[in-house]
Design a protein around this nucleic acid. Structure first.
Length: 917
RNA sequence: GGGCCCUUAGCUCAGUUGGUUAGAGCACUGCGUUUACACCGCAGGUGUCGUCGGUUCGAGUCCGGCAGGGCCCA
């Protein structure tokens, strides 16, 4: 017969063993029959599978799992699905590089297509070398690769010990997710939240797609002010009686042909006489007005600026508020349009534009500077500056602004009433930690436009509309054709709208499909609706929504969190969740944020294998929500040691109580023995004190976890556990063995002394409590021990309560102070031997233990245990105050150290006599 | 330019409503193979609480200024 409890405990290999067992037993399977009150539902943001996992993921997902395990043990049915965010641009880019292909929607589908190669080894393939393939072939490759990536993700998460219900994984690109995204879109269309508009749009020229406000970032870029002269027009000359030029400074001289006005601040004295009059643009000779607007900065350049359609977002504001004409010069490819914009009509102007047409903005700037210079309208050399420029966060070139038809969702960016409602929603949400709330509020209050959701890309959820084709062959965008909700998901480029035939596609009198797809966020903002079964499972939806918890990183408050609130507010008139738990960043040892681009990431699987999952989880759980944490392998080593300690201390407790003896014959016998011993009575003061201290810790840990403070809960449990191991176990060891010989199997049912029985009962109660307190953080080690002598999974066992411990400890328990005093006494006895550099086994023939009066009772109550643990043959307990008096034994002792007056509040020893070695 | 967070031992961090002499772990040093554990145990030293000022009988803690670090938004 093999022993149930191993001779040599180890944390290695527990992950695979327990993951298999949990899967087989359905330990984390969600029970759909439960009601909303019984359920705790968690909306984990699905990670982007095309990005690699890093320790930051392990960190924040562990925080969530600790909450999930705690709530499950508290009796809540935990709804904890996991998904993969696989649609969108990151996947497209990865597929392009991995397979060496490129999507060309004009190409036909090829059956059984195989890409030129596989596993691009992370190198990017030049666009020219990529094989063009049809959209459907491209999407198939996206699906093939994400399926592979998802397997790796799941394997890592399982290894980490996430207590996810793996039968409920979902993908944001799956047909059912697409149907949810499309249904939410259509309902928004009916309610008026989703709309299309022809408007200036931030545009990435590399990816050739529109970009939303949330995807922007400012980057410092070098630029230069060019000082240009505008000639006054006739009305200005008349008004001012002067022929002097107006000098402006611009960083984008190539936009001069797109100039529609000059603007200065209304209070700027220098330009008062010019407002309402006109000037002529250099080179192009276009007459434009001088206008006033408060956004013009008198401090900047010459205080007067040119407005172009469009150089930046301020131009858009001016254009809109001042109702200026549109004269675009930049195309979707980032090059100057072939034809001069309206307004340029002179021969010289058209010729000048001809010099620029087709050039990139970079080349166009060089060329126009030459032209301006030759014309003598450029004053001096350009003045270099550094200034912030808007970029797509995933892009490499500055964004341009082009005017296109796009789809939007109202998010409070253009509507003060909706903005106020969304701010109010944010104040209903319980942010953990609370200060993260301001990020939400700052963002919502600072919105400048609605949410642009259409993308001119391929791998994503199609916008589910068609348009009638008018007699002249142009689409009638005003009257989109929509599918029924039952028919979702649809792909308008393949499916045909009701009442039409496939042959009518793209012909006058027929229809045309919308080609754009939705932004990834337009789907991932609907994860509560996707996982809770909004579209197809009303019972599940009622049992899980609104959800309890949204855990996430601080970086996506303005994007993911906010957009999810927007959708839930619109569709359900409620928050999507009650709590938002915000994890911090992982910083590398140089205090820099870990990120792929910095090349300082550590692969998570390697860490888990080196230190063990419990150890890595310990490191993560020791960091508070909202606080950045250092990547610290030292902390993982401590976690590993704690897990090892759990195994070894448990071995001791089970051995000394005799439970191990019973458990070795069968699990049932072990369970019965543990139940019998746990039901015994605790009579010794030290045992009672330990149980009271433990009850206090149970209360503190429970309160902390209820407040989403997993760090505090771990800290109090861990601290007492080490005291339990280092002091309490050492003190009661001899008593608990009750004279059993080394190696002798203890019979749990054999009669023993009442003092031994007291220790055994206390040990059994304490072990069961400590294991459960630590189970959320160390799921593997605690489950391992639980399996030695307890029924079922510890992770489905009720969270410990303090009341039974207090009852066992009894009214008379002296609590934590007695435990502390006994530990302190043990420590000073050890110190005698440590300072004498002898083994702790060396007997102390006699010793005086000087104890402050306040602690004397505690020490006397644990005296027999102290004698045994310290191998003391004779001990006198002396009052520290009394020992300071003359003529009292203890003063001027031979170990009589120094002139220092001994601190009467601290225990110490005197007159120690050690046995000969 | 506006906002948020942080600054405590060599390192990583606790320090709750202001209250004795500011704590823990790691690292370091010495000792020790004990019927749980060498992936171990025991013992030991370690501080201008960033800085200047204010409130208070009393400030690491509350208030203000400054410096440094990180993040978000313009």
């Amino acid at each position: 017969m093999t022993s149930r409890i191993p001779d040599k405990a180890t944390v290695d290999g527990l992950e695979d063993r327990w993951n298999e067992a949990w899967e087989a037993a359905g330990t984390y399977r969600f029970d759909e029959s439960k009601t909303r009150e019984q359920v705790y539902s968690i909306d984990t943001p699905p990670p982007t599978v095309s990005g690699s996992l890093h320790v930051g993921h392990v960190f924040s997902y562990t925080h969530t799992d600790v909450v999930a395990r705690f709530q499950r043990m508290r009796g809540r049915e935990v709804f904890y699905p996991m998904g993969w965010d696989d649609n969108g641009l990151p996947t497209e880019r990865r597929v392009q590089n991995y397979y060496g292909v490129r999507c060309d929607p004009t190409l036909p589908y090829v059956e059984g297509y195989e890409p030129p190669f596989e596993g691009g080894e992370g190198k990017s393939v030049k666009a020219a070398d990529q094989q063009p393939i049809s959209r459907r072939n491209f999407v198939e490759l996206c699906e093939r690769l994400t399926a592979e990536d998802e397997k790796q993700f799941e394997s890592l998460w399982r290894h980490l010990g996430l207590s996810v219900d793996w039968s409920r994984t979902y993908q944001t690109i799956s047909p059912s997710s697409q149907a949810v995204a499309q249904q939410a879109f259509l309902r928004g269309l009916w309610r008026g939240e989703c709309y299309q508009a022809e408007a200036p749009t931030l545009w990435d020229v590399t990816f050739r797609t529109a970009v939303a406000q949330a995807e922007l970032e400012d980057r410092e870029r070098p630029g230069a002010y060019h000082r240009l002269a505008f000639e006054p027009a006739a009305d200005m000359e008349e008004a001012t009686g002067s022929y002097e030029s107006v000098w402006i400074e611009t960083t984008r001289p190539e936009l001069l042909p797109a100039c529609v006005a000059l603007v200065a601040h209304p209070d700027d004295a220098r330009y008062q006489g010019l407002f309402g009059k006109h000037v002529r643009t250099p080179l192009f000779g276009v007459e434009v007005p001088v206008v006033a607007h408060h956004l013009a900065n008198p401090e900047k350049g010459s205080g007067i600026a040119m407005i172009c359609t469009f150089g930046d977002v301020t131009d858009v504001t001016w254009w809109r508020e001042l109702r200026l004409p549109t004269r675009p010069v930049i195309g979707w490819d980032g090059r100057m349009l072939p034809d001069a914009p309206a307004g340029i009509s002179s021969e010289a102007g058209l010729a000048a534009y001809g010099e620029l047409a087709g050039l990139t903005t970079f080349s166009a700037q060089k060329r126009i500077v030459e032209l301006l210079s030759e014309a003598g309208v450029l004053d001096g050399a350009p003045r270099p500056i550094n200034h912030p420029v808007k970029f797509f966060e995933k892009g490499d070139k500055p964004l341009e602004i082009v005017t296109t038809r796009q789809w939007y969702i109202r998010n409070g960016g253009t509507d003060a009433a909706l903005n106020a409602e969304l701010v109010a929603r944010g104040s209903e949400l319980d942010f953990e930690p609370d200060f993260m709330r301001v990020r939400y509020e700052n963002w919502v209050r600072g919105l400048t436009g609605d949410w642009l959701i259409s993308r001119q890309r391929f791998f994503g959820v199609p916008i589910p509309v068609w348009y009638p084709v008018l007699a002249d062959g142009s689409p009638d965008y005003e009257n989109p054709l929509v599918p029924s909700e039952e028919s979702l998901p649809v792909d308008p480029s393949v499916d045909v709208p009701a009442g039409f035939e496939a042959s009518q596609r793209d012909v006058p009198g027929g229809f045309t499909g919308e080609k754009d797809i939705m932004d990834t966020w337009a789907t991932s903002s609907l994860t509560p609706q996707i996982v809770c079964g909004w579209r197809d499972n009303p019972a599940l939806f009622a049992a899980t929504f609104p959800m309890d918890l949204r855990p996430q990183g601080q970086d996506i408050i303005r994007t993911w969190l906010f957009s999810t609130v927007v959708r839930s507010h619109a569709e359900h008139g409620t928050l999507p969740w009650k709590h938002a738990a915000i994890s911090g960043w992982i910083l590398d040892p140089d205090r820099k944020k870990m990120s792929k681009s910095k090349g300082n990431v550590v692969t998570p699987m390697g860490l888990l294998e080196t230190h063990g999952s419990d150890a890595v989880r310990y490191w993560a759980a020791a960091a508070r929500l909202g606080t950045d944490a250092a990547f610290d392998e030292g902390q993982m080593k401590i976690g590993r040691r704690l897990a090892m300690k759990v195994l070894n201390a448990s071995k001791f407790v089970l051995g000394a109580t005799g439970i191990a003896t019973a458990a070795d014959s069968s699990l049932e016998a072990g369970i019965a023995a543990a139940d019998t011993i746990a039901a015994g009575s605790v009579t010794e003061p030290l045992d009672r004190a330990m149980l009271t201290a433990l009850a206090d810790v149970v209360d503190a840990a429970t309160t902390a976890l209820e407040k989403y403070d997993h760090t505090r809960a771990l800290e109090v449990a861990e601290t007492l556990f080490w005291t339990f191991c280092d002091d309490y176990l050492e003190l009661v060891k001899t008593r608990a063995y009750d004279g059993a010989a080394p190696g002798e199997a203890i019979d749990p049912y054999a009669p023993c002394s009442p003092a031994a029985a007291s220790a055994r009962t206390a040990l059994t109660l304490a072990l069961g409590t400590f294991l459960r307190l630590l189970a959320p953080v160390l799921p593997f080690a605690t489950e391992e021990v639980w399996s030695w002598y307890r029924p079922g999974s510890i992770h489905r066992t009720p969270w410990p309560e303090s009341a039974p411990l207090r009852e066992a400890a009894g009214e008379a328990s002296q609590g934590a102070p007695l435990l502390a005093a006994a530990g302190e006494a043990l420590s000073v006895l050890r110190k005698v031997k440590s300072e004498a550099k002898v083994s702790q086994r060396t007997p102390l023939v006699s010793v005086d233990l000087l104890v402050p009066a306040a602690k004397a009772g505690f020490v006397r109550a644990s005296e027999p245990d102290l004698l045994a643990a310290g191998r003391v043959e004779s001990m006198q307990i002396v009052d520290t105050e009394a020992a300071l008096e003359p003529n009292v034994d203890g003063l001027g002792s031979e170990d009589g150290s120094s002139d220092e007056i001994a601190d009467p509040t601290v225990m110490r020893t005197e007159n120690a006599v050690l046995a000969e070695a």
